[in-house]
Amino acid sequence: MATTARKATTAVLEERDRQRRRTAERLLASSAKLSFDPLTEVDWDAEPVPGAYYIAPHRTSLYGTALWRGLTEEQRIELSKHEVASVASVGIWFEEILMQMLLRHAFDRDPTTAHVQYALTEIADECRHSVMFARMIAKMGAPAYGAGRVAHNLGRVFKAVSTHSQTFGGTMYVEEILDSFQREMMNDESLQPLVRQVSRIHVIEEARHITYAREELQRKDLGFVRRRAEQLLMGVVVYFATTRLIHPGVYASVGIDPAEGARAARANPQWRAAKVEMAAKVVGVLDRAGLVGRTNRWLLRAAGVV
């Protein structure tokens, strides 16, 4: 019976390797066919369109609040610009973490495999995306707000010690949240052309990254104790990645006290509903992978995504 069990285990592992290879080969072919150079494919010289928002008003963190009603139309547009800059700078923060996690993943594996070669291809994509986001922030004349000191330094630790589940679960979460926002942005003709162009490139290329992370995440079997530990760590990732999307400093751009603006956003049912909607798909994926449970659901509630 022991021999039979070993053969069954070997067969399962071989099938996983075949699936991993097929996925990577498909994604490499897609990358060769449909990749972008944002330095040349985004119109960086175009001037902003007067009166156009940078993200739909109902997706801003203060929409529907008393503070929102007290803003002029020009101030609302300005706030939308700074919120896009904040989300983009958090995107850079996480992409820099992700690139280092993927390098660690590739470092321990055979570079001749399609799986590792796609990891390296994704790193190249993320380098371009980080430059693209940085240029967009500079073009808008907004600060690179970042994730804040605490989250920034937690990221320093996370990128060095993350497990397989944290690497690909964290990737799934952050990329899916950004993807949900940007799919709306790229299809909304009322928004600034710059953010629509940047969103389109990111959405198209991130679709491959999400597939790679989702399938890799689902291949990992977790025991009971390990699952609880992974859930807790995943909850911390979700909490900080979500609560740092909008830096309190954005409110100062329209004359609102940052602390007051942050309190209003946290209490805003419109903003909470937007986060729940944007996170619904990826939370479901994490749940099926065993990374959502009693151990971390309280952190997901605190983040405002369930």
Rank of each mutant, 00 (worst) to 15 (best):
A241H: 12
L194A: 01
A160F: 11
G261Y: 04
M99T: 12
D43Y: 08
P50W: 04
A11R: 13
L286A: 00
D179N: 15
E15C: 09
V157H: 12
A262V: 03
V161Y: 08
L217R: 03
E205F: 03
P193K: 01
S86A: 07
K281P: 12
D110N: 11
N268K: 02
N268H: 05
S31C: 10
R22Y: 09
S30A: 15
H202S: 04
K220G: 07
G255Q: 02
T295Y: 09
E230T: 00
K139H: 09
E215A: 09
A147I: 01
H115P: 09
E122K: 06
E47C: 05
A66H: 11
E122R: 05
L98H: 07
G64H: 02
D108V: 15
C127S: 14
V42N: 02
R22L: 12
R22S: 15
R226D: 06
K139G: 03
A259Q: 04
A264C: 07
A147S: 09
H105R: 12
E277D: 15
R227W: 03
T295A: 15
Y239W: 12
A207I: 09
R16H: 11
D179L: 06
L98Q: 08
G293N: 00
G148W: 00
E206W: 00
R272C: 04
Y53I: 10
W44K: 08
V203A: 01
A274N: 14
V203M: 10
A259I: 05
Q117F: 08
V150T: 14
L291T: 02
T10K: 15
R272A: 10
L98T: 01
D43I: 11
M278N: 13
A264K: 03
N153F: 15
V174R: 02
S253G: 05
D108K: 14
E184Q: 14
S253H: 03
S199N: 09
V42K: 05
R156C: 12
L299T: 04
I204H: 03
F224M: 11
V285Y: 11
G146K: 02
A279H: 04
S89E: 06
S253Q: 07
R76I: 07
L13V: 12
K33I: 10
R208S: 04
F107I: 13
V236H: 03
S190I: 00
K139Y: 03
Q192N: 05
M101Y: 05
L34R: 11
L34Q: 13
I256M: 01
R149Y: 12
Y212N: 10
K139P: 09
